[in-house]
Amino acid sequence: MAIQKHIVFDVVGTCVSYEAFFDCIEQTIGARLKDEGIKPQLFAFAWMEAAEREFAYLSISERYTTFMDIFKALFYRMLWMAGIAEPHSFATDDERDAILASYGRLETRPGIGDAMHKLRQAGFTVWCLTTGDTARVRGYFSRSGIDMPEENFVSCDTAGVAKPALPAYRAVLEKFGDDDEKWFAAAHMWDVSAAKKAGFKGAYCTIYEKEPCLEVFGGEMDVIADSLVDLADQVIAASP
Rank of each mutant, 00 (worst) to 15 (best):
K196G: 00
V172F: 03
V172E: 12
Y204Q: 07
K163N: 01
T158G: 09
Y169T: 00
C205R: 01
K196H: 10
A194G: 12
R170M: 09
A168R: 02
A171E: 03
G199I: 09
P164F: 03
G199N: 03
V154E: 03
A195D: 01
S193W: 08
G199R: 01
P167M: 00
Y204N: 05
C205I: 08
C156I: 07
W183C: 14
Y204C: 01
F184M: 06
E181S: 14
G199C: 06
A185T: 07
K182W: 05
A171F: 04
R170K: 15
A186M: 09
V172H: 02
T206S: 04
L173V: 09
D179H: 14
L173Q: 14
C156A: 14
K201Q: 11
D178Q: 15
C205T: 13
F200Y: 03
V192K: 13
D179K: 15
T158C: 06
V161C: 08
K182E: 10
E174Q: 13
F200S: 00
A165F: 06
A165V: 10
D191C: 13
A185W: 00
D157A: 10
L166N: 09
H188N: 15
A159K: 05
V154W: 04
S155R: 12
L166P: 01
V154S: 07
G160A: 11
L173P: 14
F153Q: 09
F184Y: 09
G202Y: 14
L166R: 10
P164G: 05
V172Q: 05
C156L: 06
T158E: 15
L173I: 12
T158S: 11
G202L: 09
F176T: 15
R170T: 11
P167I: 01
P167N: 12
Y204W: 13
E174T: 11
A198H: 02
A198Y: 00
Y169R: 00
A198N: 10
K182P: 12
A187S: 15
H188V: 14
F184H: 03
L166E: 14
V192T: 14
